[in-house]
């Protein structure tokens, strides 16, 4: 029932989304220790991680496919993409979720270690990602947002993250 509840919240949040100007909603989650956010428009639902079938001969970040009510959905794991250790972060295994997103008209699942929630962010509070030298991750970022002191939320550019 938890999945249904979370899906409902997503829908409700989306309905409210265009009510405030200069603000947008983000789904916030953890991969390893760090906190990431994606725009709520991309998201479809949040599900408990299902049985994944491995697909050979695919890129490293593709972990396989799941059966989502009869639809085959590819699932990606961003640990390898972001060069994050699989075991880093302080989360239990049953906190793991898959966020299904629709990007470029494709339905994909993103495996995350923990769902933090949905937040409103002022567009003004989002700053370009700081230039960290020779960090591949730079391309994948839309910007960062300081939520409170020494708490940085990393906003992802999903299209670049998934398709480059």
């Amino acid at each position: 029932m938890e999945t249904a509840q979370e899906r409902l919240d997503l829908d409700k949040a989306k309905n409210q989304n265009n009510k405030k100007s200069g603000q947008a909603q983000y789904v916030v989650f953890n991969i390893g220790e760090e906190e990431y956010g994606i725009e709520i428009e991309y998201t479809r639902e949040i599900i408990k991680s299902a049985q994944i079938t491995n697909v050979p001969n695919t890129e490293e970040h593709v972990v396989g496919v799941i059966n989502l009510r009869g639809i085959i959905v590819p699932v990606v794991d961003l640990h390898s993409r972001f060069e994050i250790d699989q075991d880093s972060g302080d989360f239990e295994e049953d906190e793991q979720r898959t966020i299904t997103v629709e990007v470029n008209e494709m339905l994909l699942g993103i495996q995350v270690d923990h769902i933090e929630g949905i937040v409103w962010l002022e567009e003004d509070s989002i700053t370009p990602a700081p230039d960290v030298e020779s960090n591949l991750r730079q391309d994948y970022l839309r910007g960062v947002c300081a939520r409170d002191e020494d708490h940085l939320l990393i906003l992802l550019d999903l299209e670049k993250t998934l398709f480059t």
Binding site: T53, N57, V65, N67, G70, I72, V73, M106
Partner: peptide, 23 residues
């Protein structure tokens, strides 16, 4: 179909759902 994202996967042409709901 495996969808556009995995369309060009070598040696794999698609997927099916078997008895226990697995792919």
């Amino acid at each position: 179909s495996l969808g556009n994202y995995l369309q060009d996967t070598e040696y794999i042409s698609g997927a099916t759902i078997i008895g226990d709901g697995d792919v």
